[in-house]
């Protein structure tokens, strides 16, 4: 009797029906999407790695020169017969512009997020949030254009030099990453449970003590993540930076001298080189640096995320 019932159930369970067919179709469709994404990513990684490394393997470029040399002229060879590929000025430019932007945008963004979440949640929700969402959507070329026509002349009037340089790039980038960092910081601050805020106030802390000692401390991993996301965006931004930095391939001695970044050299140079030549390969090496850096940012964010959930 029992055995028969089970068999009957099995029968209905294993019978092919239209529902199962839809299920399988959906499964294979989503699986295909995953495979495609993975394949494209793998292809890009392979291309950038193989091209980027060929500067050093095929064209006999020196890795040491690449990271320490200060002259960039890949078309020529030096006395040792190696291409001149000193990328240090760009690496320094990129790091400086990213670091200073984060230093400016980070505190401002966290301050704005505190205001929106803790001080004036109503005004924050009604006015600031839409404004910030709007700012996130502005294309980078617009930021660059504003930088070129407002920031550069302004710096030229105040400081010696042409106005182009790290300072101009930093100002443009700070403004550009500010909305992203602010909205991520806001998420982090708002995800601090209400119960912790109440617990802090109930222990006789002022609102300011609650914000500093409980909210910010609890949200710290999320705030760090927000700043690193901003840094990743700043490091990878090309167009807006290229428009205001001056594009001189030297290590600048001040923030107001023309400089360049990895991205600006890449965008400027890629139209003028031929695939397979050493000039082109050297640009791929720069692209490889960008890729590795963004990988590095991603790993840091993931590590912070893991620490947070643990």
């Amino acid at each position: 009797m029992m055995a028969k019932t089970i068999k009957e159930i099995e029968h209905t369970l294993y019978r092919k029906n239209s529902k199962m067919r839809t299920e399988r179709f959906g499964k294979s469709l989503t699986f295909l999407a995953v495979v495609l994404t993975a394949a494209i990513t793998a292809a890009i990684l392979f291309l950038v790695f193989s091209k980027g490394l060929s500067t050093f393997i095929m064209n006999d470029g020196s890795v040491k020169d690449f990271f320490t040399g200060t002259t960039w002229n890949p078309a020529e060879v030096n006395s040792l017969g190696k291409p001149i590929i000193g990328a240090l000025p760009f690496i320094v430019g990129s790091l400086a512009i990213t670091g200073i932007s984060a230093l400016i945008a980070g505190p401002l963004a966290i301050g704005a997020a505190i205001f929106m979440s803790e001080i004036a949640p109503n005004a924050g929700k009604r006015i600031m949030q839409p404004v910030i969402e709007l700012l996130v959507g502005i294309p980078s070329v617009v930021y660059g254009f504003i930088g070129l026509s407002v920031v550069v002349p302004f710096l030229r009037d105040l400081f010696p030099g042409s106005g182009f340089g790290i300072a101009a790039g930093t100002i443009v980038l700070s403004v550009m990453i500010l909305p992203t960092v602010t909205s991520l910081a806001l998420d982090a601050i708002q995800s601090v449970p209400r119960s912790l805020r109440e617990a802090s106030l109930a222990l006789g802390s002022t609102r300011w003590q609650m914000i500093c000692k409980v909210v910010l401390k609890t949200a710290k991993p999320g705030l760090l993540m927000a700043i690193i996301f901003g840094m990743a965006r700043a490091f990878g931004e090309a167009l807006a930076v290229q428009m205001v930095i001056g594009n001189a391939s030297v290590i600048p001695h001040s923030l107001f001298e023309p400089a360049s970044t990895i991205t600006s050299i890449l965008t400027m140079g890629m139209g003028y080189t031929v695939m397979g030549q050493v000039e082109n390969n050297a640009l791929w090496s720069l692209a490889l640096i960008l890729l590795l850096m963004s990988l590095f940012f991603t790993i840091i964010v993931r590590m912070i995320g893991k620490g947070k959930s643990a």
């Binding site: 449970p193 119960s195 912790l196 109440e198 617990a199 109930a202 006789g204 409980v214 401390k217």
Partner: peptide, 15 residues
Amino acid sequence: RKKVGMVFQHASVFP
């Protein structure tokens, strides 16, 4: 609130 302490329903320990 320093004089009147409060314990909540869900243990809200700080992280």
